[in-house]
Design a protein around this nucleic acid. Structure first.
Lengths: 130, 130
DNA sequence: AATCTTCACTTACAGATGTACGTGTTTAGT
DNA sequence: ACTAAACACGTACATCTGTAAGTGAAGATT
């Protein structure tokens, strides 16, 4: 139940990469982030340092390279971040966001299929755990 | 196609209230925001001023009271904000977010029903507009 | 009229954020 | 050994954010 300061947008981006490619060097993380947008090496380094300061990451030296690893579960960060967004942008209701994602942002056929399966499962569970 | 600076969390909150209760005085907006959390009157005033500076709101004096109104469609702000979040937290994929909302955050029976209807509609449309 | 209350508006400010330069150090190539 | 490339790390800094106190004028109350 560690209380951690919220993450900024840039930090979230780097944190995500950290879960994705697991413990990794600054270089590897920079390379990964660079794939989606141009970003300075030192900037990534700063984000990682801040991530560590805030308690979301840990690091150790492996030879000359510093290897960062995540200390926070992706799910926790996702939950907190999404909760905050839903609270502020949708007054706490998630349905409008779901609607937006499905209708406005669009969803492809296979995702639609998966979503249907998800609903089927939830609906069959409904009533069992009231 | 106005290019506007992104909104901060606090600004988003006030912007939402602005769409909700339409053109309104600072006091009315403050009252509304106060319903969800304790916030200083002057703080709301500052957010509104910044919203106007960034081009998201307009204001005019009605007697002694300043009335603010939105200049940006809710949908635009929602789109931009959600796009940014999905980009950073989910590498651009919306399905993981939908999954999170439906599974982890939970969804009640009536929303589940609505969602099913939504999918049905989308599925029947699939193929018609490729 | 004197006082209290209500606003608008200005100004403030510490801390967070995004972004990056510079400096020293280690390793690899000549 | 000498130089070039690769890094870690500290430092910097303009903005942006969140939050609010102070000031003065207009309207309400006694």
């Amino acid at each position: 139940m560690v209380e951690r300061p919220a993450l900024s947008k840039g930090e979230v981006e780097v944190a995500r990469v950290l879960w994705e490619i697991g413990p990794a060097t600054v270089r590897a993380i920079h390379d990964a982030v660079s794939r989606s947008r141009k970003i300075n090496f030192a900037t990534v380094q700063t984000y990682l340092r801040r991530l560590q300061t805030k308690g979301y990451a840990a690091s150790k030296l492996d030879g000359r390279a510093r290897v960062y690893s995540s200390r926070a579960k992706a799910q926790t960060v996702i939950r907190d971040t999404v909760n905050d967004l839903v609270e502020r942008l949708f007054a706490g209701e998630s349905m409008p966001l779901i609607r937006h994602l499905v209708e406005d942002r669009g969803i492809d056929e296979s995702d639609l299929k998966e979503l249907r399966g998800l609903i089927d499962r939830l609906e069959s569970e409904q009533g069992k755990t009231p």
